[in-house]
Write a protein that binds this DNA or RNA. Structure first.
Lengths: 223, 223
DNA sequence: AGATCATCGTCAGAAACCTGTCATCCACCG
DNA sequence: CGGTGGATGACAGGTTTCTGACGATGATCT
């Protein structure tokens, strides 16, 4: 039976995970960075990998891509402190079997491990902080949008809305999808919050590349 | 080819999920409670199930147990508003492939669905977003037609009409066929909606390769 | 505490838009 | 030349979306 690879740059996390996994009856190898992780794959029979996203040399997603590129189908669970939906989607689409965000509950993680034991050229070294599209730079930490020279501050709702639209740029976001993702299910379908919010956004950011798809929702076009 | 089963006691959630899944190219069946969910498994080919935990008659976990008891290995994703770790662990140990807690983000859930689905649906393998013929590229999501450099937006009706003609390019579409396929049978044969719609289309898209077959209907010629 | 301010959901009216009908005109066919 | 079927422009009714005003709420400041 193969081992479980734990790759994380933090010593503390590595030992903690090792201990939990061993206590659960698995055998474990660890690696402190992406390069080392890949080396482990060459050297040992790995039956499941836990990869942190943030790591030196190669991040978890890059390791994942490289593995899949080699045709290696070992199940991978991606760990990350990043809660962004985009990261999750990216990881899963790249072939991770699961995505768990830190802080995680040990028992849950162990259950997920048990479950799965028996997978872009888009380099994103550390730029998780800014979301850019079509002249707009959205600062995810400060909740501000920069359009050319001007910096515009957004309210909570406006910010979530814009971020969502920008992440899914090119795709049509249905009204109910936006409602669900930004407001949660606390709203009846007869509310026009979404429209109002888009309206406010449009009046703050002149020339916002968001078009209305009548009867459906909105779409952020532009690269 | 199998469908995705959505079992949840809340109407709102069911329709929301259906819509999202359909938009993602899957076909969907729903069930309002556990008993109905099991019936669906007997009646249809299901390639993945989304089960809410809280449901009448049988809850999601019971449904899951019963399925596994029968030897059915269909992947199941458990949904729940319950955030307790215990519930998660239980679900995963019972054989769920994933556990997603509400409120969830649509894009993430869709990614998880894509991840776990057994038979990739042929409805929309994702490249089907554009329909191309004779200099015209039709964006099926945004309801827009691109002719050379120009992008023209279409109304719902115009869009359906053009899509229909383009898909059946080379064939003659009879008037009553179009009426039936696009408008449904709610129209008497003495209406000229079809003509008007084609007319509007022709005036929006100059050089539309659609010819009139006198006494019969219309035909999109061109490759 | 009281005052002030920003945020945000609701609402109602306005604006924009969609779409079927109709009357009229035109092209084709015999 | 008459007749039929198709094209076209105007219009009206209905629907969707936008927008500005308002009030509730909660945070911040004095």
């Amino acid at each position: 039976m193969g081992k479980i690879l734990v790759a994380d740059d933090e010593e503390r996390v590595r030992t903690f995970l090792s201990r939990s996994l061993v206590a659960d009856g698995h055998s474990v190898v660890t690696a402190p960075d992406g390069r080392a992780a890949l080396d482990v794959f060459d050297a040992e029979a790995i039956s499941l990998a836990l990869l942190d996203i943030v790591m030196p040399y190669r991040n978890g997603l890059q390791v994942l891509s490289e593995l899949r590129g080699r045709g290696d189908r070992t199940p991978v669970i991606v760990l990350s402190a990043v809660t962004e939906v985009a990261a999750r989607v990216q990881a899963l689409d790249k072939g991770a079997v699961d995505y768990v965000s830190k802080p995680f509950h040990t028992a849950e993680l162990m259950a997920r491990v048990r479950r799965h034991i028996v997978h872009v050229p888009e380099q994103r070294p550390r730029e998780d902080r800014y979301l850019t599209a079509a002249d707009i730079v959205l600062d995810l930490d400060r909740r501000k949008a920069r359009v050319g020279p001007a910096e515009i501050s957004l309210t909570e709702r406006e910010f979530s809305m814009l971020a969502h639209l920008m992440r899914r740029r090119g795709d049509v976001c249905r009204r109910d999808e936006l409602l669900n993702d930004i407001w949660g299910q606390a709203f009846g379908p007869n509310s026009n919050v979404v429209d109002v919010c888009v309206g406010r956004l449009r009046s703050k950011l002149r020339e916002l590349p968001v078009e209305t798809i009548r009867g459906v929702g909105y779409c952020f076009y532009g690269t």
